[in-house]
């Protein structure tokens, strides 16, 4: 067992340092690149925090959808192949839901502030709310 603090915590601290110290106390290209670097570290921290659970869920969905087992990469390659070959499309039960769930999980790591992602989440929350009432 490795020790603590966790990689996620340390990466978060380095990102804060880049943003609040390096970016703030430099100008021009260096300041800009320090901010980009901080954002990249924040992204990797989200991946460390979120990916294990999301990857496991994606793996389960792929196994059910494809009726076989394999690595996450192999199953994604197989899904790609079947869609490209026209063997599966949006009328295939579960495919649309799977692609949406997988894509939303990627956005939660890559670009959680992306406007189209926020709009999609808001729409889904709205639909959920109206179903409940």
């Amino acid at each position: 067992m490795q020790d603590q603090p966790t990689p996620s915590e340390v990466i978060g601290a380095v990102a804060q340092f880049l943003k609040t110290v390096v970016a703030a106390e430099t100008t021009g290209a260096v300041s800009f690149q320090a901010r980009v670097a901080a954002n990249a570290l924040e992204m990797m921290r989200r991946e460390l925090d979120l990916a294990p659970a999301e990857d496991a869920a994606e793996h389960d969905r792929l196994k059910a959808l494809l009726g076989r087992d394999g690595s996450l990469l192999a199953l994604n390659a197989e899904l790609s192949r079947r869609i490209a070959a026209g063997e599966m499309d949006l009328t295939t039960p579960g495919l649309s839901d799977h692609l949406w769930a997988t894509t939303l999980a990627k956005l939660a790591v890559d670009q959680p502030t992306y406007a189209a992602y926020r709009a999609e989440l808001a729409q889904r929350a709205g639909a959920e709310g109206s179903r409940e009432t």
């Binding site: 899904l79 790609s80 869609i83 490209a84 026209g86 499309d89």
Partner: peptide, 10 residues
């Protein structure tokens, strides 16, 4: 592999 891209290309 990016299944969403395959869907888009189709």
């Amino acid at each position: 592999p990016r299944p969403v891209f395959d869907l888009a290309f189709r």
